[in-house]
């Protein structure tokens, strides 16, 4: 079996119990390889956010298996005990809005994660600057988030998601506030970063402009995933 960035098998999530129980996820199966960017699309209430929260280890699924790299993290219960460390070291998050920490400058917003992981301030900032360089925002390294444009903020949030070299990145509608060109630029960056850092990236989106860029798309309907081959765009 090829090692996946993230592998999800038969994932289920039930809210409540008895007559009022709601099955938000009924049978979710996904395999994303390192360096791959896949789309996760579906109508409102289909379970996208619940799936993202399960993958992000902030909501516990009811059943199924999840593996990140070679490490089984969920097998009908959390196998990993320290979910906070799991999120910090194995999963990167990109949000609809950048949600940068307003009282930290760009460098420290990105360097915070490696610092939390125990890296020295100097090393963490060095890593952060390398990523900011790669994402073409190094010239704003000392700026505060409020001084950045929307696109710059989103690139900084991508740098923050990547800085600990996580094998999985979860992007929750990262292009929603951006126009077409900027949205495509973000997807281009995600593809480049996925290849460069061998990360498996799941992009939850409604955005019709970017859906055609994915080579693989997971549709989620009534809590079940259906895989589909997308048009795909080569961002080489």
């Amino acid at each position: 079996m090829v090692t996946a960035g993230i592998r999800i098998e038969g994932l289920r999530k039930r809210f409540g119990s008895g007559d009022t129980a709601v099955d938000a996820l009924k049978d979710v199966n996904m395999v994303i390889t390192p360096g791959e960017v896949v789309g996760l699309v579906g109508p409102s209430g289909s379970g996208k956010s619940t799936l993202l929260k399960c993958l992000g280890a902030v909501v516990e699924p009811s059943a199924g298996r999840m593996t990140i790299g070679d490490e089984l993290i969920y097998d009908n219960r959390w196998v990993i005990k320290d979910l906070r460390a799991l999120r910090r070291d194995k999963i990167g998050f990109i949000f609809q809005a950048p949600y940068l920490i307003p009282f930290l400058d760009v460098t420290d917003n990105v360097a915070l994660l490696p610092m939390l992981a125990g890296l020295s301030n100097a090393m963490a900032r060095k890593q952060a600057l390398e990523l900011l360089q790669a994402l073409d925002v190094a010239h704003r390294a000392r700026a505060m988030p409020s001084q950045l444009s929307g696109g710059e903020q989103q690139r900084v949030s991508i740098a923050r998601a990547l800085v600990n070299r996580p094998p999985v990145i979860l992007a929750d509608e990262p292009t929603a506030p951006l126009d077409g060109a900027r949205a495509l630029a973000v997807i281009r960056i995600l593809n480049q970063m996925a290849r460069q850092y061998e990360a498996a990236i799941i992009v939850v989106t409604h955005d019709e402009k970017i859906i055609p860029t994915f080579k693989r798309i997971y549709h989620i309907r009534d809590g079940k995933t259906h895989e589909e081959v997308g048009e795909g765009r080569d961002f080489e």
Binding site: V58, R84, A85, R87, R88, F93, Y99, L113, L116
Partner: peptide, 15 residues
Amino acid sequence: REIAVLKLIGTRNRT
């Protein structure tokens, strides 16, 4: 919101 983000990205409660 910032606290939620900090917790999501792995900041310890004691921090």
